[in-house]
């Protein structure tokens, strides 16, 4: 068999349609992970006894085990404890949980670069903790970690391909369905690869613009 470029072109429309699934899921996951990751960071900053130790164990678990296993756990284990979830929901939950931990760790790194003088000044001025978080710490923090968050977004997009193993019909699953019928795996997989390549390059590009803009507003 020879490489068939025409065939590659012919499967692209279906793959592009399927990519909407990946995009939708990735957006939901990113929104959840940034929101929950920020919450988790604030919780960790409260430095409650026991809570932080428990969180530390969870972080070590998430960082030390494959995302695929985390997806399997959400898919196989959660239903058996009574949470019956559609594959899509289980997948989103698993990746969002994973990503949330990485967002929180990123924010932790960013916190170390914030000028402590501002916090001391804000405290001296009598600002309540809520205001210090929302008006002083978080805005600066997010500006600083934007490049890392953009990178995390590309990891999340790539992660959505793993959902094919728990039967979510996204780009890769669609490619597999097509090639199962046509016996032309190479072209279809290449098509799927191209779609991910384009999605992630676009994200990186948008990230560069965002970074440049913030760099200007910071100056």
């Amino acid at each position: 068999m020879k490489f068939n470029f025409e065939y590659l072109l012919s499967v692209m429309p279906r793959l592009i349609d399927a990519s909407l699934v990946n995009i939708r899921l990735a957006l939901i996951i990113m929104a959840l992970s940034v929101l929950l990751g920020t919450g988790l960071t604030i919780l960790r900053a409260a430095k409650l006894p026991v809570v932080n130790e428990v969180i530390a164990v969870v972080i070590s678990f998430v960082r030390g085990t494959p995302l695929l296993i985390q997806i399997f756990i959400a898919y196989y284990v959660l239903p058996s404890v009574g949470l019956d979830m559609r594959p899509e929901v289980a997948g989103v939950a698993a990746i969002a949980f994973n990503s949330m931990i990485f967002v929180s760790e990123t924010l932790r790194g960013g916190l170390a670069t914030i000028d402590p003088g501002q916090i001391e000044a804000s405290t001296a001025l009598g600002l309540p903790p809520r205001a210090i978080w929302y008006k002083v710490v978080l805005p600066q923090l997010f500006r600083r970690v934007i490049p890392v968050l953009i990178n995390e977004a590309t990891i999340v997009v790539k992660g959505t391909a793993l959902l094919s193993v728990i039967t979510v019909v996204e780009v890769l699953r669609t490619a597999q369905q097509i090639s199962a019928a046509s016996y032309r795996p190479f072209e279809t997989l290449l098509g799927a690869a191209l779609i991910f390549l384009v999605m992630n390059l676009v994200i990186s590009l948008v990230g560069k613009f965002a970074e440049a803009r913030y760099a200007v507003s910071r100056a």
Partner: peptide, 23 residues
């Protein structure tokens, strides 16, 4: 570097496993 970093590993794997035999 850019190509390998922006494609999900599972697709790289399938391309090597299903794609190369094809060639």
């Amino acid at each position: 570097v850019e190509v390998l970093r922006n494609i999900p590993f599972i697709i790289i794997l399938f391309l090597v496993y299903y794609g190369l035999p094809f060639s």
